[in-house]
């Protein structure tokens, strides 16, 4: 089903935010919408966003490629993205990330066997004072999890895997 059929109100609201002759501006919010259902932007959605924004599909694909929060491939249902950047690393983020990976039995970047969770390392998330921390991204959006421990992660993963 097309985005327009699935989310007519959202599409209209997004387009209304930008000047009528600059529809291209809607490409980023529309891509979030396109990612909502399956956690990645399917090829057909790229074509549809191109039509909605009155640009070439290649121009839409470039946006998916440039920005790290868009994906052109499926991964786990939830992406646990642990900040391992300098400020967090100074507060043990690398060790924390290693422990999370060990707990889930995956390498960094890997996905659990049940396809529920992918673990990734990411750059600073503006929560340096609350390390270790990570965000969970799925089609529905992004949530921050701060001042984490291995136990809190275990609980969260259990919840996600039970879904």
């Amino acid at each position: 089903m097309s985005l327009l059929q699935k989310y007519p109100a959202e599409v209209a609201a997004i387009l209304a935010r930008y000047p009528a002759d600059n529809k291209r501006s809607a490409v980023m919010p529309l891509l979030y919408l396109a990612q909502r259902a399956e956690n990645y932007v399917p090829a057909a959605a790229i074509d549809e966003v191109a039509v909605l924004c009155e640009i070439e599909p290649t121009q839409v694909a470039s946006i998916v490629g440039f920005y790290t929060l868009y994906y052109d491939k499926q991964a786990g249902r939830h992406r646990i993205q642990i900040c391992t950047d300098l400020p967090c690393a100074l507060r043990g983020a690398d060790e924390f990330a290693a422990a999370v990976c060990a707990h889930l039995g995956v390498e960094m970047g890997g996905t659990t066997a049940d396809g529920k969770v992918t673990v990734e390392g990411v750059m600073c998330l503006a929560a340096c004072d609350r390390a270790p921390m990570f965000q969970v991204q799925n089609g529905a959006g992004l949530t921050f999890h701060e001042n984490q421990t291995l136990d809190s992660v275990k609980a969260l993963v259990a919840k996600l895997q039970a879904e």
Binding site: P57, T58, Q59
Partner: peptide, 18 residues
Amino acid sequence: PVIGFDQRGRSLQIVTHS
């Protein structure tokens, strides 16, 4: 504009998605 850049930084590469 049927060719464009994909990715960024050192990974920047020319692609077409048309």
